[in-house]
Design a protein around this nucleic acid. Structure first.
Length: 105
DNA sequence: AAAGTGACTGACA
DNA sequence: GTGTCAGCCACTT
């Protein structure tokens, strides 16, 4: 839930960026943060605040950690990625990360 | 007010 | 390859 206009604004911008990521591609917290002029932790905080209903219409699973590592708890993200044709290794890493990386802007 | 915490990152050992 | 540390910033105790 939004506790400040700033948070709402950041959330809207993050979701907007997510919408521009093509299916089958991924980006990182740092890339989004850099593009929006925010900190990586702030981006992570936005995603962690998404409700179940929100996450249904938002491709949040296309956001991975630096180097293609999956930092989300559980295996929900890797499953959604595989469903899009992205190969995730047993070590929770996106295979061919360099080629799949999408940079906003 | 101070300290702990986290869906982060880059540097270093 | 793994582990630790210092920045980082907003939130919670």
């Amino acid at each position: 839930m939004a506790r400040s206009p700033a948070f709402d604004r950041l959330k809207r911008e993050v979701l907007s960026v997510l919408h521009d990521i093509p299916a089958g591609r991924v980006t990182t917290y740092g890339a989004i943060a850099d593009y929006l002029g925010a900190g990586p932790r702030q981006v992570a905080r936005v995603l962690s605040s998404l409700s179940e209903a929100e996450s249904e219409g938002v491709p949040w699973h296309r956001v991975v950690g630096a180097g293609g590592s999956i930092r989300t708890p559980g295996d929900r993200q890797s499953q959604r990625l595989r469903r899009e044709g992205v190969h995730v290794t047993a070590g929770n890493r996106v295979a061919g990360f360099g080629a799949l990386l999408f940079t906003p802007g």
